[in-house]
């Protein structure tokens, strides 16, 4: 360690540099979450559909994506993202690296959110759906007004838990050239030759953000989560807390 380099962490210019990285990190996380929530909801409903041609592709998507390393998805979109979209946006289209990273992260996160939401839905007592249908509500109406409000509320802590995973995973997007927090740190330590200090500082920043989020999700009072949903959420949290 080089004691003389600790002083840099109070230098406003250096801090601003880290701040830009943190902002990028939070933006990637926010964009990925916003994209993956509706997608996750659709895949959750797809997996619960009675129509096999909707159900099976949903199952295949969710299970295949969850079985893959998120870094593989990110690297793939980092390399090939642009060409994939050229048929849509024209031959000179160039996918910004930021969005390539968001795409990789969202693909993965949507599959996990789908499973969280599905766990919430299937854990509701059967009587809820039956009562809604008995009142004459259509399938869509009973989802919209009875099932989803309950299921989503129940799953808020689990979804917030996944958000900490998304934030940790943004550190992978640096590998395709997005200047998020860790990548900014790498730029600094290659200049100042102080990786220990910089990595400790960067860890601290990640820690504060993630710890606050995970404590927050633990404190949330949303009522009793049924055991079947708890088991599923535990499985998801262990299997999909990628990096």
């Amino acid at each position: 360690m080089r004691p003389d380099t600790w002083g840099m962490f109070v230098d406003p210019a250096i801090l601003r540099f880290f701040g830009q990285g943190l902002l990028e990190t939070l933006s990637i996380a926010a964009a990925s979450t916003l994209l993956s929530f509706p997608a996750g909801l659709l895949f959750a409903l797809g997996r619960l559909s009675r129509r096999a041609w909707i159900r099976w592709p949903s199952i295949a998507y969710i299970e295949a994506i969850r079985a893959l390393p998120v870094l593989l998805l990110i690297v793939y979109f980092g390399i090939k993202g642009s060409t994939l979209f050229r048929p849509l946006f024209g031959s000179d289209f160039d996918l910004p690296r930021f969005w390539a990273g968001v795409l990789g992260l969202s693909l993965y996160t949507s599959a996990v959110l789908a499973e969280i939401i599905r766990a919430g839905i299937v854990s509701l007592p059967r009587g809820q759906a039956e009562a809604a249908r008995a009142l004459g509500l259509s399938y869509a109406q009973s989802l919209r007004h009875v099932i989803l409000p309950q299921a989503l509320r129940l799953m808020v802590p689990a979804m917030m838990g996944q958000l900490t995973t998304v934030i940790k995973d943004t550190s992978l997007v640096g590998t395709i050239g997005v200047f998020e927090l860790l990548r900014q740190g790498r730029t600094i330590y290659t200049q100042f030759f102080n990786p220990i200090e910089v990595l400790l500082f960067v860890s601290l920043v990640y820690f504060v953000v993630c710890f606050a989020l995970s404590q927050g999700s633990r404190r949330l009072e949303v009522g009793r989560v049924p055991r079947i949903a708890q088991v599923k959420v535990q499985e998801l949290q262990l299997r999909d807390q990628a990096a």
Partner: peptide, 8 residues
């Protein structure tokens, strides 16, 4: 658990 594995 609250810091990224890459950083570690």
């Amino acid at each position: 658990r609250n810091t990224p594995l890459v950083v570690q």
